[in-house]
Protein backbone atom coordinates (compact mmCIF):
# COMPACT_ATOMS: atom_id res chain seq x y z
CA UNK A 1 0.00 0.00 0.00
CA UNK A 2 1.42 3.37 -1.00
CA UNK A 3 1.32 5.68 2.03
CA UNK A 4 3.81 8.24 0.72
CA UNK A 5 0.95 10.77 0.37
CA UNK A 6 0.80 10.85 4.17
CA UNK A 7 4.60 11.32 4.42
CA UNK A 8 5.04 8.42 6.84
CA UNK A 9 8.29 7.87 8.72
CA UNK A 10 9.24 4.93 10.97
CA UNK A 11 9.29 7.00 14.21
CA UNK A 12 5.80 8.42 13.55
CA UNK A 13 4.50 4.98 12.52
CA UNK A 14 5.87 3.48 15.76
CA UNK A 15 4.29 6.35 17.72
CA UNK A 16 0.83 5.68 16.27
CA UNK A 17 1.21 1.90 16.54
CA UNK A 18 2.01 2.36 20.25
CA UNK A 19 -1.17 4.43 20.72
CA UNK A 20 -3.15 1.80 18.78
CA UNK A 21 -1.67 -0.99 20.92
CA UNK A 22 -2.65 0.93 24.07
CA UNK A 23 -6.24 1.33 22.80
CA UNK A 24 -6.47 -2.37 21.90
CA UNK A 25 -5.00 -3.22 25.32
CA UNK A 26 -7.62 -1.04 27.01
CA UNK A 27 -10.37 -2.76 24.98
CA UNK A 28 -9.13 -6.20 26.03
CA UNK A 29 -8.91 -5.02 29.67
CA UNK A 30 -12.47 -3.68 29.40
CA UNK A 31 -13.65 -7.02 27.95
CA UNK A 32 -12.27 -8.97 30.89
CA UNK A 33 -12.98 -6.38 33.61
CA UNK A 34 -16.01 -4.41 32.35
CA UNK A 35 -17.18 -1.12 33.84
CA UNK A 36 -13.91 0.86 33.64
CA UNK A 37 -13.09 0.47 37.40
CA UNK A 38 -14.41 3.91 38.40
CA UNK A 39 -12.97 5.40 41.61
CA UNK A 40 -12.33 8.75 43.27
CA UNK A 41 -8.61 9.51 43.42
CA UNK A 42 -6.37 12.43 44.34
CA UNK A 43 -8.20 14.75 41.93
CA UNK A 44 -11.31 14.28 44.13
CA UNK A 45 -13.59 13.23 41.27
CA UNK A 46 -14.52 9.93 39.73
CA UNK A 47 -12.31 8.63 36.94
CA UNK A 48 -12.44 5.44 34.89
CA UNK A 49 -9.34 3.75 33.48
CA UNK A 50 -10.12 5.40 30.11
CA UNK A 51 -9.95 8.80 31.84
CA UNK A 52 -6.66 7.78 33.44
CA UNK A 53 -5.20 6.81 30.04
CA UNK A 54 -6.35 10.15 28.58
CA UNK A 55 -4.78 12.10 31.48
CA UNK A 56 -1.58 10.05 31.11
CA UNK A 57 -1.29 10.64 27.36
CA UNK A 58 -2.18 14.34 27.53
CA UNK A 59 0.19 14.89 30.45
CA UNK A 60 2.96 12.98 28.64
CA UNK A 61 2.53 15.21 25.58
CA UNK A 62 3.05 18.30 27.77
CA UNK A 63 6.00 16.68 29.60
CA UNK A 64 7.64 16.15 26.19
CA UNK A 65 6.86 19.70 25.04
CA UNK A 66 8.18 21.11 28.34
CA UNK A 67 11.35 19.04 27.98
CA UNK A 68 11.88 20.34 24.43
CA UNK A 69 11.30 23.94 25.54
CA UNK A 70 13.49 23.94 28.67
CA UNK A 71 15.87 20.97 28.60
CA UNK A 72 16.77 20.15 24.98
CA UNK A 73 16.09 17.77 22.12
CA UNK A 74 17.00 14.48 23.87
CA UNK A 75 13.58 13.07 24.71
CA UNK A 76 14.52 9.75 26.35
CA UNK A 77 14.43 11.33 29.82
CA UNK A 78 11.09 12.94 28.98
CA UNK A 79 9.81 9.48 28.02
CA UNK A 80 11.06 8.06 31.33
CA UNK A 81 9.37 10.88 33.29
CA UNK A 82 6.17 10.27 31.29
CA UNK A 83 6.17 6.55 32.11
CA UNK A 84 6.59 7.33 35.83
CA UNK A 85 3.84 9.96 35.53
CA UNK A 86 1.50 7.46 33.79
CA UNK A 87 2.13 4.83 36.49
CA UNK A 88 1.33 7.43 39.18
CA UNK A 89 -1.83 8.49 37.33
CA UNK A 90 -3.04 4.88 37.04
CA UNK A 91 -2.21 4.28 40.71
CA UNK A 92 -3.51 7.45 42.39
CA UNK A 93 -5.87 9.43 40.08
Amino acid sequence: MDLSWMAWTWPTAIFFLTILTMLIGMSVWEYFVPGGSPRVGVLRFETTRGDRLFVSLLGSAFIHLGWLAFMGPNLWWALAVSVVYAVLVFRYV
Binding site: S4, W5, M6, A7, W8, T9, P11, T12, F15, F16, L65, L68, P73, L75
Partner: peptide, 25 residues
Amino acid sequence: MTVVNYSVQDTFGNNEFFWNGTDWF
Protein backbone atom coordinates in the same frame (compact mmCIF):
# COMPACT_ATOMS: atom_id res chain seq x y z
CA MET B 1 -1.64 11.63 11.50
CA THR B 2 -0.47 13.47 8.37
CA VAL B 3 0.13 16.61 10.42
CA VAL B 4 2.22 14.60 12.91
CA ASN B 5 4.22 13.19 9.98
CA TYR B 6 4.83 16.67 8.56
CA SER B 7 5.87 18.04 11.95
CA VAL B 8 9.07 15.99 12.08
CA GLN B 9 10.11 16.59 8.47
CA ASP B 10 11.10 19.38 6.12
CA THR B 11 10.07 19.71 2.50
CA PHE B 12 11.15 21.82 -0.45
CA GLY B 13 8.12 20.77 -2.54
CA ASN B 14 7.75 17.92 -5.04
CA ASN B 15 6.31 15.75 -2.23
CA GLU B 16 9.86 15.04 -1.03
CA PHE B 17 10.40 15.04 2.72
CA PHE B 18 13.55 15.09 4.85
CA TRP B 19 13.76 14.00 8.50
CA ASN B 20 14.11 16.96 10.84
CA GLY B 21 13.45 15.42 14.26
CA THR B 22 11.91 17.68 16.91
CA ASP B 23 13.52 20.92 15.66
CA TRP B 24 10.26 22.49 14.53
CA PHE B 25 8.77 21.90 17.98
